[in-house]
Amino acid sequence: MRVMMLSAQDARKLRPSMLAGAILIIGIIVVYLVQLALNMILTQDAYYLRELKIERKALSTEVAIIQEEVDSLASPQNLADAANRLGMVANPSSVLLDIEKDRIFGTPEPVSAENAVVASANLVANSALGATTEFTASSIAATGFEVSVTTSQAGSSEVALVNGRIPASPTR
């Protein structure tokens, strides 16, 4: 190690620059601050992501609840029971319209519960049946709607008189 004698002026020249030091320190601080900010944002996002996942799970549960309810309401067992409660029976005599050939097939006939071929109430097991249609003839009547099925003898109507042909529509 050598020790040299310097003038005060030279010694000042060799002294580290305050500016450079300040820039270095500020630079380091800025880098740390940026890193801190990024970390904060990332951490915040992680919590936000977690919240969103919890929300997604809650919504998925809600969808599942509604889906199962819809499944139950749409099941043939529920529909058969609901129709039966309203006094509906299946009518095997159907009438088909052939639009292309302007033909009517079959004769409409009213059906009553007594001579219906099929029991309309559900006879097929379904233990998954949860939500069911709640309306009945009496509950609908309570709402003020008229509950009745009127059968008209369409066989004597104008439709059947035109030699089994569908009357031409004025719109075509």
Binding site: E68, D71, S72, A74, S75, P76, Q77, V124, A125, N126, S127, A128, L129
Partner: peptide, 8 residues
């Protein structure tokens, strides 16, 4: 497993 239509 859910079978919405039961025994159908």
């Amino acid at each position: 497993r859910l079978y919405p239509n039961g025994a159908v």
